[in-house]
């Protein structure tokens, strides 16, 4: 992304954001509520076109009208992008077919197995808890084996086992050359996943550095400093101790 700007209504949600993400690398973006993190992911995914600047994916500029999607991009958002009336297996089979997978049922069952949902394959999504929905959302993203993975607070709602499954998948994905852009509120999660960490405040990347250059306490202090300079999040909702 080069000098990307995004205006929604009268408000500039992103201002001059530049991010380069190489193969096998992960960038974690920290920021308070309303900083523009989710918008950054939507622009990166090609769901929204930028109001200014350029977005390149896999070395190619995104289409100006954004009418076609790139199957190499996977997105895990706040919502699961699934259908409450369909079962877990049916939901994954719909996505398997959309992505043109051969033997979508076998792949869908493998995805359910991978994220510990095999036992609830035939249960409708509407009966799932928040954590189970999140696992199924991860299974949906895993199914298409994306090269670029965009994750919006992927740990939220997951139990300890779910968090370990996610961390394991992300590490394996990076080892195989995948790139990851992770959005989070948590310094701990940012350092667990990201090779590099950036802080987004009011639509601007105000600080970035490699994981090696920032220990958890140091990053937490730095993040607090930026929040006190103009973030709209409160210290009370910040971090995990």
């Amino acid at each position: 992304m080069q000098h990307v700007q995004k205006r929604i209504g009268e408000r500039w949600v992103l201002s001059d954001v530049s991010v380069v993400l190489g193969a096998g690398r992960a960038l974690a973006v920290l920021g308070p509520n309303g900083a523009g993190k989710s918008t950054l992911l939507r622009v990166a995914a090609g769901l929204w076109s930028p109001s200014g600047g350029m977005v390149y994916r896999f070395g190619r500029r995104g289409t100006p009208d954004h009418t076609a999607s790139d199957p190499r991009v996977g997105l895990v958002g706040h919502q699961s992008f699934l259908y409450p009336a369909l079962t877990a297996l049916e939901n994954l089979m719909v996505y398997g077919r959309l992505y043109g997978l051969s033997r979508p049922k076998v792949k869908a069952e493998a995805a359910l197995e991978r994220f510990g949902l095999r036992w609830s394959a035939n249960e409708p999504l509407k009966t799932f808890s928040r954590g189970m929905k999140q696992r199924l959302s991860l299974a949906r993203a895993w199914l298409s084996d994306p090269e670029l993975l965009l994750l919006d607070e992927p740990f939220s709602g997951l139990d300890l086992e779910g968090q370990e499954l996610l961390t394991g998948w992300l590490a394996e994905h990076r080892r195989r050359g995948g790139a990851q852009l992770l959005i989070t509120h948590s310094v701990e999660e940012a350092l667990k996943v990201g090779d590099a960490v950036a802080i987004l405040m009011r639509g601007r990347l105000v600080w970035w550095g490699s994981r090696d250059a920032a220990d958890e306490d140091g990053l937490r202090v730095r993040y607090r400093e930026w929040l006190s300079k103009g973030g709209i999040g409160s210290f009370a909702s910040f971090g995990s101790s």
Partner: peptide
């Protein structure tokens, strides 16, 4: 109606092929 609760339209938009 069925796309609304879990923003499934986003998933359809991201899937390969033109959005049309």
């Amino acid at each position: 109606h069925h796309e609304m609760p879990e923003e499934a339209l986003v998933g359809l938009m991201l899937a390969p092929g033109e959005r049309t």
